[in-house]
Each structure stands twice: as structure tokens, then as C-alpha cells.
């Protein structure tokens, strides 16, 4: 070993007794001669006993006794129990279950359709109902589903971009650090973008499709990046993200989606109120 950096790289193994005797002797010899390394070594070593004084609070017997019961009450577990015998393929820990999204989307779609019909006052005729429901419901559901997918995509992309933004380059006590996880997720996002873009274009959501397309490009760049943090290429990636104002665009889309959600909620409320009023009215007539 020649440089101080190489000696500093083995401090950790020495602190935790994972250094072979031969390399430990080399380190000791270097520390005797090099004041800079010796000072750094002592400073870091002295922090360890202090850090060992940290205590965790004990949550108590009642907590441990109720742990299983509380776990059983989690809705995710109840969903799983029904499907346990079927192995599910898409279960990377990165992804959250989407089943809940689908049922919410269906409920909202149904209410939205009801709202459209209610407020436009379309004269119902028995033979029109099935085709009307089919067309409008299918369209609404697919539109909502694509937007849900896009929202999830934006959320995950945002995490990657924020992670990229927060990398500190040039911290001298950080030798090279890889970011395998981000690259893996970026690769997944780049792949998923292809289908999502098509779906968005199909449902005429051009602006979102363009944003996903921009994100796809950045995700591909991250996925193909060599796994080193202190690489100047990271700076190029970061400035690419800044120049395209990607985070701002994501935030904007998220704001729009939030507003849509609120509008749907209000519509839903209106429909419920009207339906209950009309039900009350009918009852009165009957009386």
C-alpha cells in the first residue's frame, strides 16, 4: 500500500477487528509515521465508545403481547391470505400493491359516470343503457387507470431524481460509492415508460406522454451510468435534470392530479346527496 487514502480505506476493518494481522501491521507502521492519518484514526476511533452508549427504549410487555394481533388487523395481510397459494410474480419490494388503486379507480369511475348522467339529464331509454354505460365506463376507467399509473411513475421518478440531486460529489472522505439500487429502479422505469407513453397517447394525454418520454431518457442515462459517485458524469446527469426542469414539471403534474382528485370527490358527494334526496322524495310520494 502506498497512499494515505489506501490506509484510510482499511480503518473500518481495523476498528471492527476484521483486518488480517499482516495488513494490520502495515497500518500500524503507517500510523506511526504519518501524522495526518494518525490524527484521523484517533478521532474516528474515539467516537466509537460514545456511539456504543446509545440506548433503545424498550416498548414494553403490552406492546409485544399485542404485536401479532395488530399485525393481523393490517388490511394488506387479509388481502394476502386470500391469495397466498398463488405465487405473485411482480413483487419487487420497490413496488407498492396496486390492487387498492384499481378498486378506487373503479369506484371513482362509476361515480363519475353517474355524475355525468345525472347532471346532463340524458333521457334514459332501456335499450340505450348498456351501450352508454359500456362506452363511457370503459373510457373513464381506462383514462383514470392510465393517470394512476402515470402518477405512480412520476412519484418513483421523483425519488430517483431527488436522490441524484442529493449526491454530494467531492466529499473527500467518500471513496467511490456505487448506486446499484437507483440504477436498477431507473432501468425498470425506463422499460415501463415505453408502454405507459403509448397508453397516454392513446387516451390523448399528450403533455404527460411527453414528460414520461423525457423521464425515460434520463432513467436510461442513470441506468447506464458507471457505478461511481465521484464521477464527473454525475454532474452532467444532474445538470441535464436541472436544465429540463424535470422536478418542477413533475410537481406541476402532481398538483394537477391532486386537483382532479378533489374535483372527483366533490362530484361524488353531489351525486350521493342528489341520490339520497331523490330517494327521500320518492318515499314521500309513496306516502
Amino acid at each position: 500500500m502506498k497512499s494515505c487514502k489506501e490506509y484510510q480505506n482499511i480503518f473500518i476493518e481495523d476498528f471492527y477487528d476484521e483486518l488480517e494481522p499482516y495488513r494490520r501491521d502495515l497500518l500500524r507502521a503507517h500510523l506511526r509515521q504519518c501524522e495526518k492519518c494518525s490524527r484521523l484514526y484517533k478521532e474516528m476511533l474515539s467516537a466509537l465508545p460514545l456511539l456504543a452508549k446509545r440506548q433503545r427504549p424498550e416498548p414494553g410487555a403490552a406492546f409485544w403481547q399485542s404485536y401479532w394481533q395488530k399485525l393481523l388487523q393490517r388490511p394488506e395481510l387479509n388481502q394476502t391470505q386470500k391469495h397466498l397459494k398463488k405465487p405473485r410474480l411482480s413483487q419487487s419490494p420497490f413496488f407498492r400493491p396496486r390492487r387498492r388503486y384499481l378498486s378506487t379507480a373503479l369506484a371513482i369511475a362509476a361515480f363519475a359516470l353517474l355524475a355525468v348522467v345525472w347532471f346532463t339529464g340524458i333521457p334514459w331509454q332501456k335499450q340505450d343503457i348498456p351501450s352508454l354505460i359500456n362506452n363511457q365506463l370503459t373510457q373513464t376507467i381506462s383514462h383514470i387507470n392510465v393517470r394512476k399509473e402515470a402518477a405512480l411513475y412520476l412519484e418513483r421518478s421523483k425519488l430517483i431524481l431527488l436522490g441524484l440531486k442529493n449526491i454530494d460529489i467531492g466529499i473527500n472522505d467518500s471513496p467511490s460509492i456505487d448506486f446499484a439500487h437507483q440504477r436498477k429502479v431507473s432501468k425498470e422505469l425506463a422499460t415501463e415508460a415505453v408502454v405507459l407513453k403509448q397508453q397516454l397517447e392513446k387516451s390523448e394525454q399528450q403533455r404527460l406522454a411527453e414528460l414520461i418520454s423525457e423521464l425515460e431518457l434520463v432513467m436510461m442515462q442513470i441506468a447506464n451510468h458507471d457505478a461511481v459517485y465521484d464521477d464527473p458524469a454525475i454532474e452532467v446527469l444532474k445538470s441535464g435534470v436541472d436544465n429540463r426542469a424535470l422536478l418542477m414539471k413533475i410537481n406541476l403534474e402532481e398538483m394537477i392530479m391532486d386537483r382532479e382528485k378533489q374535483c372527483l370527490k366533490i362530484q361524488r358527494k353531489k351525486v350521493v346527496t342528489s341520490v339520497s334526496k331523490s330517494a327521500g322524495g320518492e318515499n314521500e310520494t309513496q306516502l
Partner: peptide, 21 residues
């Protein structure tokens, strides 16, 4: 991650906390 990465992260972690404390 690679063992080298673990060592780098540990080095950084201990250095940061040592400075903070």
C-alpha cells in the same frame, strides 16, 4: 452492494457522527 461500498459508507458515517459529537 460491494464490500468496498459498505466500507466507504461506514467510513463516511463514522466520520460524520464523530464530527457531530
Amino acid at each position: 452492494v460491494a464490500e468496498g461500498t459498505v466500507k466507504s459508507l461506514l467510513f463516511r458515517a463514522i466520520r460524520k457522527m464523530q464530527q457531530a459529537l
